[in-house]
Amino acid sequence: MSKNISVLVYGTGFAGQGHAQAFRDMGAEVVGIVGRTQSVVQHVAKDMNIPYASTDWQQALADCKPDVVSIATPGGAHVDAISQAIEFGCHVFCDKPLTESGDSSKKLHQLATQKNVKTAFAASFRYMPDVIHAKRLVAEGAIGEPLEVECVSHFNLERDIPFGWSHRKEHGGGRLNNNFTHKLSIVTSIIGEKILSIMGEVRDDLGRAPIVDGVHNFKKRRDFIPRDLNDPSLKWGESNVEWSYTVLAQIESQIAQKPVSVLFKHGGLHPRFHEDHIVIYGSAGAIYIKGHYASGPLYFYDDNNEWQALPLPEDIAQDIPVAEGDTEKNWRYLIRELVKDIKGEPVAPYQTFKEGSQYQQLIDLIRKNDNWVDVTHLQ
């Protein structure tokens, strides 16, 4: 395939505009964009010099005839849009979560397989440079057999961020959908892709959030927090998703005799005291990566029983796409892999709807919160 890959984007907010620019930077042609509100989608299309703008997704598919669709709406709006695109024969790039439930995600994966289209699932923080470095160190045996992984993060999100999709399970909200997906992708990238078992506990520490008009860009929602939260005319929406979670998993490693134990601990509303981090412990050393999504730096516990900062290898640094932020860099990395694959070029394995479906089914299991053992009868 010698021509430029053509892309139709669904979504006009931060992710939609980010996907559009990322595809362009990776050599694709963005032929159209679709959104809910006519005035908004026309404004974004004009601002980004996108030739086609519409609020009718199915009509846009027929008019634009894209090679790829990029899905950048909240997870609750994914099913119909992706199903229609697959039926048109389009390849699909989709942000996390894949859908709002394991059942619907599984059906999309099955449909994509039946129609033989390529898919990419953008739980893409596995492409952080220090994650790639850690993966290399573990594979080289730098820490011996991997034994245990610890992922700890606290976001201290403002409790009065305006009510929206992130507060509702049916819309794709919740910290599991929007934090755990990245963390699990990071860990499986380093340790191994085969998840053996999982259990967890979730908690809604929020309860409700103020309803405010005018929020369009997810990144700017903090700007719309009401000044007077005691205003009697203020309306409130109810949260039905988790804002904190604790998950335990066992993951298979090809260089470990036993399953690797993994702890994922996240508090969306709680303040941090020490740094967020990801640590991989092994039989002969350990790797510590600073930051909730492994932004770095990376430290190695060496033979002298000391933590030593390791510089990023030059070949890894050179392979990271140029972009303003980590999210944008990671989109470009995965999009580059997808575009190469569509063109028939050699490409390393990347996450597809197979993982998107699996992750959503795991999230459904975690949300059941049914792993507790009643011990009140014990003396």
Rank of each mutant, 00 (worst) to 15 (best):
G11V: 12
T12M: 02
G13R: 03
G18N: 07
H19M: 13
A20W: 02
Q21C: 09
A22E: 01
F23W: 06
R24T: 05
R24K: 13
R36S: 09
T37N: 13
Q42I: 03
A45K: 04
A45S: 06
A45T: 12
K46V: 06
P51F: 05
Y52K: 05
D56Q: 11
D56G: 07
W57G: 15
Q59S: 12
L61A: 01
L61Y: 02
D63P: 13
K65W: 02
P66Q: 01
P74F: 05
S83V: 05
A85Y: 02
E87P: 07
E87Q: 13
E87H: 14
D95F: 03
P97A: 10
T99V: 13
E100M: 10
K106W: 01
K107F: 08
L108M: 10
L108Y: 02
T113F: 01
V117D: 02
A123S: 11
S124L: 10
P129F: 00
H133I: 08
A134C: 12
A134N: 03
A139L: 10
G141Q: 07
A142D: 05
A142V: 14
I143M: 10
I143K: 11
C151N: 10
V152T: 08
H154F: 08
H154Q: 14
L157S: 10
E158S: 15
G164W: 00
H167P: 05
L176I: 00
N177E: 04
L184D: 04
S185A: 14
T188M: 08
G192F: 02
L196A: 08
G200A: 07
V202Y: 00
V202K: 03
L206Q: 13
I211K: 09
V212K: 04
R222G: 10
P226T: 07
L229V: 11
S233R: 04
E242H: 09
V247D: 00
L248T: 12
P259D: 09
V260W: 03
S261E: 10
K265H: 03
H266W: 06
G267Q: 01
H270L: 15
H274N: 08
E275V: 11
G282V: 06
G285T: 05
I287N: 05
Y288M: 09
H292L: 02
A294Q: 08
S295T: 09
N304Q: 11
N305S: 09
L310F: 12
D319A: 14
A323D: 04
G325C: 11
K329P: 10
Y333N: 10
D341T: 04
I363H: 01
D364A: 12
D364K: 00
N369C: 10
V373W: 02
